[in-house]
Design a protein around this nucleic acid. Structure first.
Lengths: 341, 341
DNA sequence: ATGAAAGCGCTAACAG
DNA sequence: CTGTTAGCGCTTTCAT
């Protein structure tokens, strides 16, 4: 119960505290003989190193702070997995905090992390409120890097997917398969990610001299039930729509059910009878649900794990050379063609 | 860039470091006048308190460590949400680490957390490997509490759902609705949670003098596709099965699709034609997917959030009185009847 | 109500 | 290769 310190270890091993410290950090030119004895003493006494003290003294903690918008979001969960795996190999520990969907706690999390003395901070989502944090991080000399789904503030290292390109990919694919009337379902109007994607969608339509109308673009909660209802309404009101882009996995799943209920697909083959024609469905973001449906869903995906890995690498790099100019790393999307389009 | 310390603040405010410290921790009998000046200085200099130093000296960090089995598991994500909300109100910070599904990193995470000087540790899942950690935590005087889905080791504070009761509830409901041949789909044979539930299921069948057979109990990955296939096979091989209990949400969703493909429901009403009869479906664990299907899924749910909240409360309590005997807190399940059974 | 001073456990010069 | 020693920034008696 009484805390064991390196003094106790040193005494027990018959060496000085320096030696123990050196053994602990593996830094020293310590004879493997004494190292052995020290490790034995450590084992024997059940010593655990006090990192507060170590980081107080050495001014580095081996801990990377992460502020994640929403841990239950599969995208950010994957980002964190990538971050964790990569940083672990460099003996860094992840200190995860949650800022909440609307970023209420972002500042609080951020400051707690700084106070804990983390060596760097990764913002996973919620980067739109990051502008004010940049300066503060710089003052503290703590690298800050954002790993998000959408663009973020300038002047900060960022890793993100290419949303516009993702939408272009999906739209072009549909056009090439003969679709001229393509609707958009889902997402919140305030979402930057959505704006970027819709940009890509509109651009591509224009490029092919195809029309687009704002009433083919629907906002919708990420709730499958609502998505299903909206889908039914949409294809009822606009019977000439032949393809739907779905803003995320929940929307896509809901849309799938909506189409099923309407007896309109989804699928690739245009039937002879106009009103029985199947409707093509392409979603953003891959996941196990996409393979569940029958037919499985065609999607455009940006690897969240990859984003996490790259963010970790960039952070490690910046820990080495703190002054290099900030850069944006953009992860390209990938189209995964399955049965739904 | 140069780090600001309380010395700088003290000097700038024209007071001693003691005063600053007292203001920071709100402990002092400090005149609101000087407090004001100190806070101004803090603001002005952009001071952030160094918690490593604070916790080194005061032997408490205000941080609660959490080792979670798998962050992407919706159940544990909810547990953490509950934990976080509750502990936040007591100015505790959560230090989240991931042990991995099979608990590879459990010990590593645990020891890192101890070394960081956390005030307490919550094991969210993976408690089956916890036995060896208990002693170590005790030595360090750090409260350890397990918040899991299944039973855990004796001698540790634990908060968990009543899995057996949950299964009894579901089984009894089905029996009361006239089902005599009830199958079980999903879960891994090694899962304790599953064992507990299957215990409740068998017990209840026996209690009603109903038969059960091991080939009505199927192991299955938590993958909707596989679950769908198994469902089709199951009801084909055992046409008299009239109800299926699904071990979790993914399984339930897959089972739903399997039933749809077989043209067998799910639903409540027994049709006249035996082979067209709908099959009742009850799942464990509620979530948005449950409402997605048509009909929506009837489930038995144990509130994960509640488990998190109770674990937090218990931990707080133990922080006050470290010596009280360990206790098990069991959260009762709730049956949510929807269309599928 | 405030200040002076003694460490918390550890690391990093510097010596040997 | 190993030991001595001076702090890291903060909290906390104990004075005043």
């Amino acid at each position: 119960m009484k805390k064991i310190t390196i003094n106790d270890v040193a005494e027990s091993a018959g060496v000085s505290v320096t030696t123990v410290s050196l053994v602990l950090s593996g830094k020293g030119r310590i004879s493997s003989d004494t190292a052995q004895r020290v490790n034995q003493a450590i084992e024997h006494l059940g010593y655990v190193r006090n990192r507060s003290a170590a980081s107080l003294r050495s001014r580095e903690s081996g801990v990377i702070g992460v502020v994640v918008r929403d841990l239950t979001d599969a995208f950010y969960a994957e980002v964190i997995a990538g971050l964790g795996d990569t940083l672990e190999k460099h003996d860094k520990l992840l200190f995860l905090t949650q800022s909440g969907r609307s970023g209420q706690h972002l500042r609080r999390c951020f400051e707690s992390l700084l106070a804990q003395g983390v060596d760097g901070i990764v913002l996973a989502g919620g980067a739109e409120h990051a502008a004010t944090l940049i300066e503060q991080a710089q003052e503290q000399g703590v690298p800050l890097i954002s790993a998000t789904r959408a663009s973020s503030t300038e002047g900060i290292d960022a890793v993100r997917p290419d949303n516009m390109q993702a939408a272009r990919l999906a739209t072009e694919y549909l056009i090439r398969r003969g679709h001229h009337t393509i609707a958009w379902l889902g997402g919140n109007g305030a979402s930057l990610t959505r704006a970027e994607r819709i940009g890509g969608y509109c651009t591509t339509l224009m490029q092919y001299s195809l029309p687009f109308r704002s009433d083919w673009i629907l906002e919708c909660d990420s709730d499958p039930q609502q998505a299903a209802e909206y889908t039914e309404t949409l294809i009822h009101q606009h019977p000439n729509i032949s393809a739907i882009l779905c803003h995320n996995a929940s929307i896509a799943l809901g849309c799938y059910f909506g189409l099923m209920r309407s007896g309109r697909g989804p699928g690739k083959e245009a039937m002879e009878n106009y009103f029985e024609r199947k409707i093509a469905l392409v979603g953003f973001g891959d996941g196990p649900e996409a393979n569940l449906t029958d037919p499985p869903l065609t999607v455009v995906n940006s690897s969240a794990r990859e984003i996490g890995v790259l963010a970790a690498r960039r952070l490690l790099q910046r820990l080495q050379e703190p002054t290099s100019p900030s850069q944006s790393i953009i992860v390209p999307p990938e189209m995964i063609v399955r049965g739904s389009a």
